[in-house]
């Protein structure tokens, strides 16, 4: 099984031997990859039963929990990185979770679909419909993505909350870097990857 390209990109950001917390870790693919290639230790948080079992089978330390119920089980600054891939837009309080990420970790890493991608803009502006795409496959009434945002929205929130962005990578729907997305991220970037920390 080959790893999603955005997870490979995240892997390149992680210092070997780090302690990592992965929020919404799915089947544990990222943590497994980081354990195998970067010698990291840590935990994955996941709510789905089938994914929990897959994590256990992949030798990933998984904690079954609901991110919306908070992260009180974890003490402050116990991780080098707190990661959340393609989950920010699906939680009840994304802003609080960002703060929590930086309470628990030195650095945070998030990825999310950029809602301001030009195809979404076209669907809404000309079609008058809520956008759907490979990245956002569900209709409005059944989507788990209740807090979609754009690259500009996210960066504005970070600025307001004293969060310093260390790195940003924009990728297309297949999670590959493209020159266009780098040049005009909020218009041409389908998915955003950020690494950030508390402003020192």
């Amino acid at each position: 099984m080959s790893l999603r390209p955005d997870l490979v990109l995240i892997g390149e950001w992680i210092r070997p031997g780090s302690r990592v917390l992965d929020l919404g870790c799915g089947d544990g693919a990222l943590l497994k990859h980081l354990q195998d290639t970067r010698n990291v230790t840590g935990y994955g948080l996941e709510i789905d039963d089938a994914n929990v079992t897959r994590c256990i089978s992949s030798d990933v330390n998984v904690i079954q929990t609901d991110l919306d119920a908070g992260l009180q089980d974890f003490s402050g600054k116990s991780f080098d990185y707190v990661i959340m891939t393609q989950t920010l837009q699906a939680v009840h309080f994304p802003d609080r979770l960002l703060e929590e990420m930086l309470r628990l970790g030195d650095e945070g890493i998030v990825t999310f679909p950029n809602f301001a991608h030009w195809q979404n803009r076209v669907q809404l502006a000309l079609g008058g419909r809520m956008p759907m795409s490979r990245t956002l496959p569900n209709p409005w009434y059944s989507t788990p993505n209740i807090h979609l945002c754009s690259v500009t929205d996210f960066e504005k929130l970070c600025a307001e909350r004293g969060i310093h962005i260390l790195q940003r990578v924009m990728v297309d729907h297949a999670h590959h870097r493209t020159p266009g997305a780098t040049l005009l991220p909020n218009l041409l970037g389908k998915n955003a990857l950020y690494r950030f920390q508390r402003r020192g």
Binding site: T41, V62, Q64, F74, S78
Partner: peptide, 21 residues
């Protein structure tokens, strides 16, 4: 059970935790 889990997490031990419906 989460009280137990938390004490293990605080000690950086290997932990798997599951709540069964």
């Amino acid at each position: 059970s989460r009280e137990i889990m938390r004490s293990l997490l605080d000690n950086n031990l290997d932990v798997v935790y599951a709540t069964i419906e």
